[in-house]
Amino acid sequence: MTAALQAQGLGRRYGKRWALSDCTLDIPAGHVVGLVGPNGAGKTTLLNLASGQLAPTTGTIRVLGGRPGSDRAQMGKVGFVAQDTPTYAGLTITEHLKLGAKLNPRWDDALARERIERLGLDPAQRAGKLSGGQRAQLALTLGIAKRPELLILDEPVAALDPLARREFMQGLLEATVEHELSVVLSSHLVSDLERTCDYLIVLVDSRVQVAGEVEELLATHHRLTGPQRDTGRLPADQQVISASHTDRQSTFIIRTEAPIHDPAWTVSQLSLEDLVLAYMNTTARTHHRPVLEAQR
C-alpha cells in the first residue's frame, strides 16, 4: 500500500523565516492523522505543501505516491478543506454542489445530496446565511463528495462551538469509515483530536517533534515520579521529553521501548494531552535537546 504522505527533509521558507524545516514523515494510508501544535507552528504550511497549494523550498513531499498538485488526477485524489472552511457567501448550497460536480471528475452527486439532506440543510439556502457549523459541514461535504483518497482538513473546527465541533468530527469519522479515506487534520487543541485520531504528529516551532500511531505513543511514553535526580543519571534508553524538579522530587516524562525496572520511580500513564503538552513545553524552554535527534 502506498504511503498517504511521505516527506524527506521538507522545508518551506517565507522570506527569511522558516515556516517549516527539516520535516521527515512517513504516514501509511488508512489513518486518521492529527496534526497538533500551537498557532504559528507551521501546520498550515505543511498541509498546504501536502495539497500542492505551496511548493517546498527544500526537500521533497509525495502524497499517495504523487507530487502534490502536479496534475488533475493527483488533485482529484486529494481533498482539502481550508482553514475557516471558506464558501461562496452568494451561492446556495445547491450551487456549491454544482460547482463540485463541474470541477471534479470523480464527483459523487448522490453522496453530496444525501449528506446535505441528512444534515437537515435547505439546499436553496445561501452559504452566507449558514451558521459556522453548517458552513463547515458544507465544506466537508464538498471535500468528501469529491471522492478523494486522502482528505486534508486545516483547523476545520477552530471557529466552531463545542456542539458543532462534535457533530463535525462525528460526520468526518463516519465518512472516513464509509469511504475508506485517509485523513489528515490539524488543530491546536488536542481535545479535538483525541477521540478521532489514531496517528499523531506534534509540530512545534516549524519542526516535527514526534510522529507515530497514538497507541504506540501512549505505550512508550511514561511519567516517572520519584526522589530528586539529575536528568543525566537516567538510563540511556530512556529519552527525556520533559523534566521538572522540586527540592525533593523529580518528575520526568520519558520515551522508552523497554520496561522500567527502577523501583524508585512511580510510573504513571500519560493521556494524549499530557504527551502533546510535554513536547510543546520542552521546545518552549530549550531549543537544543539531544532527544530531538533520537526521536527519528
Binding site: R72, M75, V81, A82, P86
Partner: peptide, 14 residues
C-alpha cells in the same frame, strides 16, 4: 479576501 480561492483551487482544477 474571502478565502474562496482555496475552495476552488482544491477542486480538481489547476
Amino acid at each position: 479576501e474571502t478565502g474562496t480561492h482555496r475552495l476552488v483551487w482544491n477542486q480538481s482544477i489547476t
